[in-house]
């Protein structure tokens, strides 16, 4: 069996005595598609924020591709090959969709500022074909701020996918999206990510979405991992049904 792409060992985060995450040890193999479930306050977002460097863990270790990335900042984790999208889409509202993608390209490739002209025909081609893959071509010249929330989230995910990151974390990709659009949303987001060979972790509340798109589930409860494994097994787990799924249908 090959080494995991990503692993956390005994990850812990406390905020002035309040434990937000505790003893999180997870191994993720390359190519897996993992759903993270749990009620609000279960520690899911804290976990994502630690992994991507927004929060520094109080204890524990994060390994990515064999390297210790504990304590790196968001820029460094992004450069290492971990990207994320956000529960509330984080886009550059005044720029067009294409410009948003160009900024994502420039930021990822010129990690340090460079003196070369940033917007080249090649980059515009790359940005356009990426928009194509995510089905956003038609709105390439629309300012991102005028897009509906669902489309904005798609753009957010497309930006996270720029530069073919090895690991992509999607923070509630279907929240704020109407019930009948959720599957379409996931289809357009997951397919191009899969095609690029990215390993995907996504936070999700809708168990139908989880069943359809995940091949493994990690359930969080009160800052720690309650269950981790095969979708069918975890979702039928008695504790998960009681503490996680019961709450999440609210």
């Amino acid at each position: 069996m090959s080494a995991p792409l990503f692993r956390t060992i005994g990850l812990e985060k406390t905020f002035g005595g309040v434990v937000a995450a505790k003893d999180i040890s997870i191994d993720v193999m390359s190519g897996e598609r993992i759903a993270i479930i749990g009620s609000n306050g279960a520690g899911k977002t804290t976990f994502v924020n630690m992994v991507t460097g927004y929060l520094t863990p109080s204890a524990g270790q994060i390994l990515f591709d064999g390297h210790d990335i504990t304590g790196l900042d968001p820029r460094q984790t992004a450069q290492a090959g971990i990207r994320r999208s956000f529960q509330i889409a984080q886009v550059f509202a005044e720029m067009t969709v294409l410009e948003n993608m160009l900024i994502a390209l420039i930021a990822g490739q010129d990690g340090r500022p460079s003196a070369r002209a940033a917007i080249t025909p090649e980059r515009i081609d790359i940005a356009r074909s990426a928009l194509d893959r995510f089905g956003l071509s038609v709105i390439a010249d629309t300012p991102a701020g005028t897009l509906p929330q669902g489309t904005r989230k798609q753009l957010d995910i497309a930006m996270a996918a720029v530069g073919d990151p090895r690991l992509v974390l999607l923070d509630e990709p279907t929240s704020g999206v109407s019930a009948d659009e959720k599957m379409a949303m996931m289809d357009t987001a997951i397919a191009p990510l899969d095609a690029s060979g990215a390993t995907i972790l996504f936070i999700e509340h809708d168990m139908d979405v989880v069943r359809r798109y995940a091949d493994r589930v990690i359930a969080f409860y009160e800052g720690t991992v309650l269950a981790d494994g095969n979708v069918a097994v975890v979702l039928e787990d008695e504790k998960v049904r009681k503490y996680v799924i019961g709450d999440s249908h609210a």
């Binding site: 900042d73 992004a78 509202a93 900024i103 940033a118």
Partner: peptide, 20 residues
């Protein structure tokens, strides 16, 4: 250049920019 083109992004959403 890259450094100049990203100035607007700094103004609009710094956190997003570092995540990129």
């Amino acid at each position: 250049s890259g450094a100049g083109a990203m100035l607007d992004a700094v103004r609009e959403n710094e956190i997003r920019l570092s995540y990129l």
